[in-house]
C-alpha cells in the first residue's frame, strides 16, 4: 500500500512538474525537503530521548499500570485481541492520554512502543497489519486533543481577539470524528472476527 502511494506521489509530482509546473522549484524540493526531514529528526531525537526516559520511570513506578487499569474497560472493547497483553494496553492507554493532553512529542514514542507490542501478538503473516494496529492508528489520526495549544498560540500571535474561542468547537469536532473513527474500527474488527 505504502509502496504504491509513495511511488505514485513521486511519479505524479515529477511528471506534472516537468510538463506543467515549475522545474526550478521541483529541483529545490529535493534538497529542501530532505534536509527538513533530517533537522526534524534532530529535534525529535532530543525530545524523544527525554520522553522515553521519563516514560521508563513511569512504567517502573506503576503510573502506566494505573492508567491502563483505568482505561482497560474501554480499550478491550476497541482492541479485543490484546485483552491479556498488559504491556500493549499500558502503552496504548498512555499514548491516548498523552494525545488528549496535547503532549504530541510524548505520545509518539509511546505509540511506537505500542505498535511493537501489537506486532508481537499479530497472528497475520509478515507485513500485514492486524485489526488492532489499524484501530490504533485510525483512532490516533482522528485526533484526540482537548486543547489545541499550538493553534491557540498562532491565533494569539496573529491578533485574534479571542484565541481560545476555538476550544469548544474543536472539542466537539474532534469528539465527533473520534467517535466515528471508533465506530468504524468496531465495525471493521467485528466483521473480521465473524469470518
Amino acid at each position: 500500500m505504502l509502496n504504491i502511494i509513495w511511488g505514485s506521489m513521486l511519479v505524479v509530482a515529477i511528471v506534472y512538474g516537468i510538463f506543467l509546473g515549475d522545474i526550478e522549484s521541483l529541483n529545490e524540493a529535493f534538497l529542501d525537503s530532505s534536509s527538513e526531514a533530517v533537522s526534524l529528526c534532530i529535534t525529535m531525537l532530543g525530545i524523544m530521548s527525554f520522553w522515553m526516559g521519563i516514560m521508563e520511570i513511569a512504567r517502573k513506578g506503576g503510573v502506566l499500570v494505573h492508567l491502563a487499569k483505568f482505561m482497560k474497560p474501554l480499550l478491550v472493547k476497541i482492541f479485543p485481541g490484546i485483552r491479556d497483553n498488559d504491556k500493549a494496553l499500558e502503552y496504548i492507554a498512555a499514548n491516548f492520554a498523552a494525545n488528549i493532553m496535547g503532549l504530541g512529542w510524548a505520545a509518539t514514542p509511546l505509540g511506537l512502543k505500542a505498535m511493537k507490542e501489537l506486532k508481537k501478538c499479530n497472528n497475520r503473516e509478515d507485513g500485514v497489519a492486524s485489526d488492532e494496529m489499524c484501530s490504533f492508528l485510525v483512532i490516533n489520526i482522528s485526533s484526540l486533543q482537548l486543547v489545541p495549544v499550538t493553534i491557540i498560540a498562532y491565533r494569539n500571535q496573529y491578533g485574534s481577539v479571542n484565541p481560545t474561542a476555538i476550544i469548544g468547537p474543536a472539542i466537539i469536532v474532534s469528539g465527533i470524528s473520534t467517535i466515528v473513527a471508533i465506530i468504524f474500527c468496531l465495525i471493521m474488527t467485528g466483521r473480521g472476527a465473524g469470518k
Binding site: M1, L2, N3, M115, G127, A129, S135, N140, F184
Partner: peptide
C-alpha cells in the same frame, strides 16, 4: 508507525483515517 514495525499491507487504516 507502520514502517517502524515493518508493515506494508495497511488494510483498512487509510479508509478509516480518511473517513474520520
Amino acid at each position: 508507525y507502520y514502517s517502524y514495525v515493518g508493515i506494508s499491507k495497511t488494510r483498512w487504516t487509510l479508509p478509516g483515517a480518511l473517513l474520520s
